[in-house]
Write a protein that binds this DNA or RNA. Structure first.
Lengths: 199, 199, 199, 199
DNA sequence: GATGAATGAGGATTCATTCAT
DNA sequence: AATGAATGAATCCTCATTCAT
């Protein structure tokens, strides 16, 4: 594989992400991608078997990038509580700074997701299992009050996803300050799990 | 308007909801709806001007039904805190028992939503403004600790949406009990706003 | 047939003419006519077997009206030359004051005309045969110079049609005065047939 | 551009012309063209953006060909009167030998013409402005009697169009010899403008 | 490595028409 | 006399994909 190939593959993926985020699903046709990239539609098939393969690659890469981003951030934290909060903070940070990548993980779902290889879902759980570990450690050390760490982690993730989605999909009321909204929401989600006396 | 008319219109809407929920956007074509209903595609145009009109009707009806459902439930509560929690509980209850209706409100978005009449968005905010009122009252009565009621209400809504979405879109881990997950998530969201001393 | 029937039939015809002239062929659907008339599309079929029948009726009535109009005008003239020029003038007058009726006779042609009953074409020739008669009489009296009256009449008709079409279809250059254009064209067409010495 | 490309594009245009001439507007669908050419309907879109683009191309090419044809013929004439008559004769000759091309210029009108780019109309006036020039020169040299050259040119064009239309649309009476009709009509139109003394 | 030609399937929508009432 | 319900066929057009080059 030459440099040029690599580059075209990357350009196709990047353009797809941008198109998907700015124009929506309906605008994401093989033709529109090719046009935007400045290449023939046929060329996409040199790198991807079909549209599904392209979409799945997009999901896979986003999942991977999100995981790596979180793992990186967590490594820099020291205490369990720090790792816990940093995990959450990093998740939101990634989503808000890379909305076109984050949204692919969740929004593509209904269409192509049914054909997404089940095994790859496991990868998507990586960062979530990280969170489970921190909670379990926190509970063991008496720093957190959590009945069921697995459920708690999933619940946190779900709530985060809700907060992030609202912001990304621009469903936030005009009168509400975006950063304040995110901050308050994060505080609320995190505080519920920490032992009060730690404050 | 004859019985048959009413019925076909209803059947079209119901089938659209089901198709949208089970098959996704891409499967929702005028043809596929007609086929499922067992009627010619042309017949849909007897009841809806075009596909947008049909989608907007679906959204509108769902929004209305959700609002009415919540308002009904809230009316049966007496104290502010009860009304507050009942509002939240009702929201989730509606979503989980009518997933195909709930999901229309949020998932149709990218395509037809941009052409959805702005004025109708206001209706969608009804139940959310209800929540703002309860929070303000709760704060006044010293039953809740909330810096900014508007942000809090939006944050609650976003978190609820996240939790509900996970369940509805079946992204929940198999090992997790659905009802337990919902219950714990709800508790977590609600508790954060209530004054501890009430415990 | 009651008064109301008559009236609806007339309204359908009139609306069809107007629509055809102002919006073009493509806008002339049974639905659009019905909508404009304020009646159900089905109602048109109470008065016309099908769209062809409606179009043919429009043509027939226009042809008839044009014939009657010309015959009336000609009757008021006394000399042969007067009748000749009056015939021509009346033709143009009808076309310019009833463009929506005139244009039906010629513009509908390509579509429905192939199915227009041949016998009815003869009626359309009535006013043209009138012209042949005048020319023959004029030649006999030495007032006109015409080799072949039949050809001459057809040629005049064709030229008139050209002039009238240009005006009606608004293909006339903006810089050109409509009335002047018609007057000069008419003069030119007529003068060529009259014996110079008569001037 | 390969040979095959060129050829298919040409075949589409030619088939469109033929269909339009023989069957009328209504028969000219993308499907019918494709069927006639023996190609899928989709293939047409490889050469034309949409139906309008195809129709406009047809008009443009016809206008261009007519202009070039006339200009060629006129160049071969020497005197002003010759150029004048040759201009007229060439116009009619083109129309009668290429009826399917001539008719496109005028008959497509009502539908697609409203969306025909204004600037291209100017090209259509080229041969007509040629005529204005000859008349002005003829008048200056005392060979023609014309009050208003612009109006005269337009009037001639209109009359020619009428004569040609009658022949092309086969509205000519069976008893009339086509060539004789055209000849006599031409003579009549031309003679009216020439100074008698030239006879 | 990349492309142009070509296509079958399907998209929303409109049409003339029929039928039962 | 008039209508609402319903439809099959047709409209333009877009899509993902294949194939030969």
């Amino acid at each position: 594989m030459s440099h040029a190939d690599q580059s075209l593959r990357e350009r196709i993926l990047q353009t797809s992400r941008t198109l998907l985020y700015s124009q929506g699903h309906l605008a994401l046709s093989m033709r529109s991608i090719a046009k935007e990239v400045g290449v023939s539609a046929t060329s996409i098939y040199l790198y991807f078997d079909n549209k599904d393969h392209l979409l799945h690659t997009l999901i896979e890469e986003s999942v991977e990038e999100l995981s790596v981003f979180i793992e990186d951030k967590v490594l820099q934290a020291t205490t369990v509580v720090d790792k816990f909060t940093e995990n959450i903070r990093a998740y939101v940070e990634f989503a808000l700074t890379n909305p076109e990548k984050y949204q692919i993980i969740y929004n593509v779902h209904p269409e192509a997701m049914s054909r997404y290889p089940k095994e790859k879902f496991r990868k998507a759980r990586r960062c979530y299992e990280l969170l489970v570990g921190f909670i379990e450690e926190g509970v063991a050390k008496g720093l957190m009050e959590v009945a069921n760490p697995v459920i708690a982690a999933y619940s946190i993730w779900a709530q985060l996803h809700g907060v992030v989605s609202v912001v990304i999909n621009q469903r936030l009321d005009n009168r509400i300050d975006r950063d304040l909204f995110v901050q308050e929401s994060l505080d609320h989600i995190v505080q519920g799990f920490l032992v009060r006396s730690t404050v």
